[in-house]
Amino acid sequence: MEKRIFAAGAEELSLLGFGSMRLPQRSEDPTDIDEALATRMFDYAIENGVNYFDTAYPYHRGESERFVGRTLSRHPRDSYHLASKMPTWLVKSEADLERIFNEQLEKCRVDYFDFYLAHNLNVDYYDILRRTGIYEFMSRKKKEGKIRHLGFSFHDRPELLTRIVEEHEWDFAQIQLNYLDWELQNAARQYEILTDHGLPVVVMEPVRGGTLATLSESACQILRAADPSASPASWAIRFAASLPNVMTVLSGMSNMEQVQDNVATMNAFFPLTEREREVIAEALHAFKLASTIPCTGCRYCMDCPAGVDIPGVFATYNQYCINKNAIAFETGYDVLGAEHQASHCVNCKACLPKCPQHIAIPDRLREIDQTAKKLFSQT
Rank of each mutant, 00 (worst) to 15 (best):
I359S: 05
S218E: 15
T39D: 08
L352C: 06
T195H: 07
V259W: 04
P362Y: 04
S254H: 13
F6I: 04
I46C: 10
I100S: 03
E167F: 06
A95F: 03
I310K: 01
N186F: 06
N323L: 12
D32N: 08
Q174H: 00
F329H: 08
K374T: 08
N48T: 11
R70I: 02
L375C: 06
R109H: 12
M266W: 11
P311R: 06
T248R: 14
A283Q: 01
Q370N: 10
A36N: 12
K288D: 02
A7H: 11
Y112N: 11
L223R: 07
A281C: 00
C298M: 05
L15V: 07
Q319Y: 13
Q25C: 12
C345T: 03
D96C: 01
V207I: 15
L180H: 06
Y59G: 04
P58V: 00
R163N: 13
K142F: 11
R109W: 04
F376C: 09
H149T: 02
Y135L: 11
V249F: 08
R130G: 03
T31F: 01
R66N: 07
Y317D: 12
A8D: 09
T71P: 00
N323K: 15
R109Q: 15
F287Y: 10
R157W: 11
E367D: 15
S93V: 02
V50W: 05
H119M: 00
D309A: 15
R99D: 04
A95V: 05
L199A: 05
D43S: 11
F101S: 08
E257C: 03
E103I: 01
E169K: 10
T88E: 03
P305L: 03
S242C: 13
F239C: 14
L117S: 01
K141C: 14
N262K: 10
V249T: 15
D127H: 13
P228S: 12
D334V: 09
T331D: 13
S254Q: 15
D181W: 02
H155S: 06
V123M: 03
E2V: 12
Y52L: 09
F154H: 02
L212H: 02
R163F: 02
D78I: 00
G307I: 09
N323F: 12
G297E: 07
R208G: 00
A290D: 14
E136M: 07
C348P: 08
M302D: 07
A264C: 05
L129F: 03
W182A: 13
L160N: 10
G9K: 10
G337D: 13
D369T: 08
S79A: 15
Q176V: 07
Y52N: 05
A264M: 08
R366T: 07
K349S: 15
Q357T: 06
V201L: 06
F101E: 08
L15Y: 14
G297D: 08
G133D: 13
L161N: 06
Y44I: 04
E11Q: 15
F42P: 04
T214P: 00
V203Y: 05
H285K: 14
D78H: 07
D111N: 09
A56K: 01
R157G: 02
F270E: 14
E2P: 01
D96V: 05
R77H: 04
D181P: 03
F239T: 06
E278C: 02
A236M: 11
Y52F: 14
G307V: 12
N325L: 10
F67E: 06
A230M: 15
C345A: 06
N267E: 15
A241W: 12
R275I: 09
E159Y: 12
